[in-house]
Every structure is written in structure tokens, then in C-alpha cells.
Simulated assay, not measured.
Amino acid sequence: MKAHSVLVVDDDPDISNAIEIYLRSEGIGVYKASDGEEALQKLQAHSVQLIIMDIMMPGLDGLQTTLEIRETCNVPIIMLSARTEDYDKIVGLNIGADDYIAKPFNPLELMARVKSQLRRFTGLGAQINQSSEDAEHEIQVRGLVYNKQKKTMTLEGEDVRLTPTEFHILRLFMENKGRIFAIDEIYERVWKEPAFQPENTVAVHIRRIREKIEFNPREPKYIKVVWGIGYKLEE
């Protein structure tokens, strides 16, 4: 894996130091912050490809920090929390997190999630920045357009601001217009790991995509539910 940098945001130095050890053992650079305000400062000063964010912190907590980050930046965010209720997970995903892992966590699982997010984000970045002299190839569904060379999504000519995970879900649908995807398959193809109770995670990301591409997310015209089966992109 090429050299990347991760920002670890946690007010517990034992946890942030342990995560740093695991990351550096994989050749990944590490910046650390103990609260949300410091995290925002570090983001302004350094280029990072992933954020590992604790939810419960004094001052500006992880949820509020994520909201502020998402106003200007689509870098992947993995949330950490000692609270394991589904409600907390859904809240975190709803406000812009890409993944969620409960404390205490298995270091191997955390590193697998880190590598998965880095692959998606840096792969997307490389594709976006690559030069292209060939004719553009586009997939269009009414006003929604996916440019396969530039790796961009536009709606009625305007860029759609997506997180890397949202982009990969929508790309999967765009490249397979009309095909019905089971929730497990969506998870396995996007997250690149076996699905284990992925319903909430996938549903939250699709809800966020709908909020960005649908005129009325409550009555979606693009991504439709096929009850008892999964989702599809309506042609």
C-alpha cells in the first residue's frame, strides 16, 4: 500500500497511541488530535486520506466535528464509540461517517476497515485526477450522469457531492441500470468484506444518496426499493 496518512481523533491517549502503533506497522502516517477543535486544525494543516473519529469527546464531540468536516471535505471517516446501540450507529452514518466500529475493537478488524476505506478513497482520487485524451464515456439516467473516465457524478449538469462510499454505491447502480441488488451483495461489492447484518448500514447510505439526487427523497425516482429483495436504479 502506498504511503497514506490517517488522522486519529480520540481523547483517550491509550487508545490513540495503540491505534497509531497498528497504523505505523502498516506504513501509514499518523496525525493525532484529542478533540474536535484540534482535529479541524490538523485537517487544515495536513493532508490525510482517512479519519478515525471517537464520538464521545469533551468540547466538540465526534458527531459535531463530522458535521463540520462534511461541509467542505469528503475524506472517509470511521467512527469509534463505546456505545453499541443501532441508534448511535445510524446517527453517525446519517451525518456523514463512512463506517462505524464499536469499542473495544479487534485491531485486525479495525485495520481491515482502514485499508478498505483507503483503497476506495485513494483509488477514486487517482481516477479523478488521471488525464484523459479519449472521448468521454458516460452513463446517463435522465438528469443523472456518471462519467466513467473522470469518475464524476452530475445531476442536471451540477456536480453531486458524494462521500467515497456513496460514490461507489451509486456507481454500482449506474453501471447496472435496472438490475436489482440484494442488500448483502451491495455491502460485499462496496465494502469488500462479508456482509453481517448490513441492512442499517446500506439503508443509511442510500438515504443519504437520495437526499443528494432526488427532488423528493420521500418519493424517489432514481433508487427504488424492491420489497423483500433489495434496491435498483430505475431506468
Rank of each mutant, 00 (worst) to 15 (best):
I69M: 02
Q49M: 03
S47R: 06
L23D: 12
D61L: 02
D88R: 05
L67H: 05
L93W: 01
I69C: 05
I90M: 13
A33N: 05
G62L: 02
L67A: 04
Y87V: 06
S81M: 04
A39F: 06
A97G: 11
D88N: 12
T65F: 13
I95S: 09
I69F: 00
G59E: 09
T65R: 14
D88Q: 11
L67G: 03
E68S: 11
A39T: 08
M79T: 10
D61E: 02
E68A: 15
G59V: 15
Q49A: 10
I90A: 13
K89Y: 15
E26D: 07
Y31A: 11
P76L: 00
R70G: 00
Y87L: 09
I52Q: 06
M57V: 11
Q41S: 14
D54P: 05
S34T: 14
Q64A: 09
A45W: 12
S47K: 09
P76M: 01
V91D: 15
I78G: 10
K42Y: 09
P76C: 04
N74Q: 14
A39Y: 01
Q41M: 12
S25P: 05
G59Y: 06
G96E: 12
N94M: 13
I52K: 03
V75I: 02
D35W: 01
G92A: 15
S34D: 13
K32F: 05
D54G: 13
S81P: 15
I51S: 08
Y31H: 12
K42I: 14
R70N: 03
L43V: 04
I77H: 03
E85F: 00
E26Q: 05
G36K: 14
T84M: 07
I51N: 08
V91P: 09
E26W: 04
I28Q: 07
N74K: 13
I69H: 03
C73M: 13
E26T: 06
V91F: 06
L67M: 09
L43F: 10
D88G: 01
I51D: 09
T65W: 13
M56W: 07
L93T: 09
V91A: 09
T72I: 02
L93H: 09
N74W: 05
S34W: 04
S81A: 11
D61S: 02
C73R: 08
C73L: 14
S81H: 08
L80F: 13
G29T: 04
K32N: 07
G59I: 15
I51M: 10
C73A: 13
G92D: 11
